[in-house]
Computed example of a mutant assay.
Amino acid sequence: MYALFRDRMEAGRMLAERLRGEAGKRTLVLALPRGGVPVAFEVARVLGAELDVLPVRKIGVPGQRELAMGAIASGGALHIERDTMHAAQVSQAQFDTVLAQERVELARRETLYRGNRPPAQVEDRTVLVVDDGLATGATVKAAVLALHALHPARIVAAAPVAPAGIETGFTDIVNAFVCVAQPALFFSVGQHYDDFSETTDDDVRELLRRAWSS
């Protein structure tokens, strides 16, 4: 199977082309760190839009951290995948333990990435929520739930790649779902990239610095 994207930056440029019809003068691109930041950086650059970061943490199944049983986002939003919890036989106590750990990490990243900079204004704007790919969609759902309380004009969930049919889970919570590719055979986000190396905290901070100083 051939990869669809060379790296996250190329994926971002391809995604930006799909998003041109969604962008306006006051469009805000919100990146989900860490992997979503390089993608969103290119989306914002191509569209001439403002970029900001919305820290989100996956709540992974114990022993299978990449399998999301939920997610949290800045602003207190919590999304739980009850079916995944049940299938993985995760107790409420186990879930609560992982949740507490991820809340600590979420607060750390909020301070690390943003520092004293206030969040971008969301109210009455079109907001593009960008990640590097969706598997279960839990992290993007958590981000969207956080945004609802801030009263954006429109919310668009966007990613370079996602499983076929996943958009049905977003029907009631976003105004649009935009994806470059939705292959029928989908095992992981990383399989669709030639280079899916880890995006570091330093990478995130540098890209945000470049975006905020331009």
Rank of each mutant, 00 (worst) to 15 (best):
E22I: 02
A11K: 00
H192E: 06
T171P: 01
R103A: 03
Q182C: 04
V53M: 07
R20H: 09
R13G: 12
P152A: 05
G190R: 11
R209T: 14
D201E: 15
F186S: 01
R20I: 07
I59C: 01
L32R: 01
D131K: 10
V29N: 02
M14G: 03
E110A: 13
P152F: 04
M69C: 06
M9F: 13
Q92P: 00
A184G: 04
I59T: 01
L54G: 00
A153S: 14
C179F: 00
M1S: 13
I80N: 03
D195Q: 11
I155E: 00
E66N: 10
H79M: 11
A107E: 15
L150V: 05
L99C: 08
T171R: 15
S197E: 13
I72Y: 07
R103D: 02
Y2E: 14
R6K: 15
A3R: 11
G60P: 02
R65K: 14
D7P: 06
Y113V: 07
V39K: 01
V144P: 04
F170K: 02
Q121W: 08
G137Q: 08
L99S: 05
L112V: 11
G70H: 03
T199M: 10
E81I: 00
A158W: 03
L147D: 05
Q101P: 00
T171C: 08
R114K: 15
V161Q: 03
L185F: 12
V39Q: 03
G36Q: 07
Q191M: 14
I173P: 05
E105W: 10
I80S: 05
M14Y: 01
A44T: 02
A93K: 14
A162Q: 01
R114E: 13
Q89F: 12
R82S: 12
L112E: 14
G190S: 15
A31Q: 09
V129H: 03
R205H: 04
V98T: 09
F187H: 15
L128C: 10
A176D: 14
K58A: 03
A23Y: 07
A87W: 09
A181C: 09
R125L: 12
H148T: 12
D195M: 04
Y2K: 14
R103V: 00
